[in-house]
Amino acid sequence: MKTLIAAAVGAACMVMAGLTMTETAAAQDLMVEKKVFELPSYTTQGGRTLKNVKVGWESYGTLNADKSNAILICHFFSGNSHAAGKYAAADAAPGYWDAIVGPGKAIDTNRYFVLSSDTLVNLNTGDPKTTTTGPASLDPDTGKPYALDFPVVTVGDFVNVQKALVESLGIRKLALVAGPSMGALQTYEWAASHPEMVAKAMPVIGAAEADAQLIAWLDVWAAPILVDPNWNKGDYYGKAPPNAGLAKALAVVTLQANHQEWANATFGRRAAKEGEEPAKALANRFQVQSILDTAGEARAKVSDANHFLYLVKANQLYAAGGVSLADAATKIKAPVLLITQPKDLVFTADAIDRTAETLRKGGVDVTQAFLQGTRGHLDGVISMKQAEGAIRAFLEK
């Protein structure tokens, strides 16, 4: 029982920390250095100019002489730039897509220069390997954290900062843009807003527009933070942070990112503690409740609640190209490999079908590949080796 519980806690923590499961890929010799990209100023799509914008980034492989072999990987909601490799040999696990990014792998770093960056308002403000600009950052004009004075930012803003990074390296066209979940949203955005810069696109476990159902679910994700009195309308820096609300929010994300097959097989209806049956007292809990909460509490300690809320807003606002899925379908010129999981509870099968159908009607060349497993949405992070053949074939086309 203890082994099972430890494994479940570890799995849930890895989900939210953006780390791959050890079952997906063995550690290898790809060693990575985290760097920082800085813009003296950046004007958001909403018209607000920010000073000293910083994001972290990393790369794998070597950029060729004509700079034509670059691939950009975009990360998911709770992730960061660490897509593959290790920062140090002693690291517990490699980056989340290490199963498909590396020497000789589907995205072969012997052939391609692969880069990935932290987004604006990245969740992982307490992670020393994450650099981001958001509500927790100091406003250069006041010397205090922005808090809710930070402007609303969009997936388009994430992409525009990435574009500045890419162009700073002298790269004019990307051989591939790819990413899971929120990384898929960034992938569609790249293809729709900068079609001249994207040769191929590989969105994974993501639709090209946030529909009403997703918008509402994202509101459910945010709700525990908003009712935590420590949130204090975003003004909590230098005070007790709203970690109770944030922990519960992260537990909700983890649950929806998985699937009932996994939950039932892993936890069943077991009590959290032997001898404390849930029917005996209101405070007695089921194991699945306890494990999700424990994982959420651990992750909340290195995350920021306001950043979580800004990420929610960016995802709610999302439509590829900034207008609509139908409009984006007329702008995307790159062929698309759309990799999804039919059991996904975040981007459901009908939302994926709607994206694929609309893109095809707009003239986009769409190839689909499907992942199998019991983890639902999360299979797009931890089960990507299944898609290795499809990815290799797509890159060779």
Results as ranks from 00 to 15, higher is better:
106 A>R: 11
37 F>Y: 06
64 N>L: 00
318 Y>D: 04
174 L>R: 01
300 A>G: 14
307 H>F: 04
5 I>V: 13
240 A>P: 11
174 L>N: 02
260 Q>H: 12
73 I>D: 00
99 A>L: 09
376 G>V: 10
254 T>N: 15
390 A>G: 11
219 D>I: 01
160 N>R: 12
134 G>W: 09
77 F>A: 05
247 A>D: 00
233 K>F: 12
52 N>F: 04
64 N>D: 01
222 A>M: 08
74 C>N: 02
98 D>A: 09
117 S>T: 15
118 D>G: 06
273 K>P: 10
282 L>D: 12
232 N>C: 06
363 G>Y: 10
39 L>Q: 01
82 H>C: 11
260 Q>E: 02
361 K>W: 10
132 T>K: 08
168 S>H: 03
353 D>K: 15
251 A>W: 00
378 L>Y: 13
177 V>L: 06
114 V>Q: 01
298 A>H: 08
282 L>W: 14
311 L>D: 14
117 S>D: 15
180 P>Q: 01
94 P>H: 07
268 G>D: 03
74 C>G: 00
112 Y>W: 09
51 K>I: 14
365 D>Q: 05
17 A>N: 11
24 T>E: 12
395 L>C: 11
153 V>R: 04
287 Q>V: 15
88 A>H: 13
170 G>Q: 00
21 M>R: 15
39 L>D: 06
110 N>M: 13
255 L>A: 14
319 A>M: 11
184 A>Q: 11
264 N>A: 05
394 F>I: 02
99 A>I: 14
